[in-house]
Amino acid sequence: MPWVSETRKALPASRCSMITWQTRATLRGMCHHKQMWQYLKQCPAHGLPICVMPYVSIITSSLTKKEKASLPAVKIALGKYGLADVEDTTGSAATDSKDEDDIDLFGSDEEEESEEVKWLREDHLAQYESNKAKKPALMARSSILLDVKPWDDETDMAKLEECIKSIQADSLVWGSSKLVSVGYIIKKLQIKCVVEDDKVGIDMLEEQITAFEDYVQSMDVAAFNRI
């Protein structure tokens, strides 16, 4: 299948995900299949790729080869199905795998295949474009590691941590934490959080954390990475 490697090349290797490209190709081919979308819509928004798998195989097995080939290859953005927050992994069918057990799901008829090749490739290119156009709109997130410093050696660090974790904001998720020795007998609290870039600012975090003024002397950002 020489076209397989071609289409792979045309796509960014950076967005690999756990579904093989065949699954995605099949998925895309099925997009207009009503039954499929009924199943899809019932899936919880998170974990989409995994939960889709069984439905894909159910549907593919219920269709004949001919039917599959005749399905229109229109790709519909997941966002249109009320899943705006989900990264559209169906759009970036890329993998740098050298998997040898690729199976051509679209029949073996030579004539038919060249048709498939054409639309698949065009489809991929179009998607790469539309995906790119869409990307900035995706919810970018950052992982932030905070240093929270107490006033003295008598500050109750467990209570301090409790206070910090009580802070709530849209998209803010508190992660793990640990106490790090500063010097003498002072320890600071190092705590991780994940935020959506557009929703939570450092100012807001600092304001709310330092508001626990009985416990907190100051807050610094120890690490700031994109996810």
Binding site: R141, S143, L145, V173, W174, G175, S176, S177, K178, Q190, K192, C193, V194, A222, A223, N225, I227
Partner: peptide, 15 residues
Amino acid sequence: KAERECGITIDISLW
């Protein structure tokens, strides 16, 4: 990446 999102390990955020 999934681990970073959940914030399980601090050591991964200090790369």
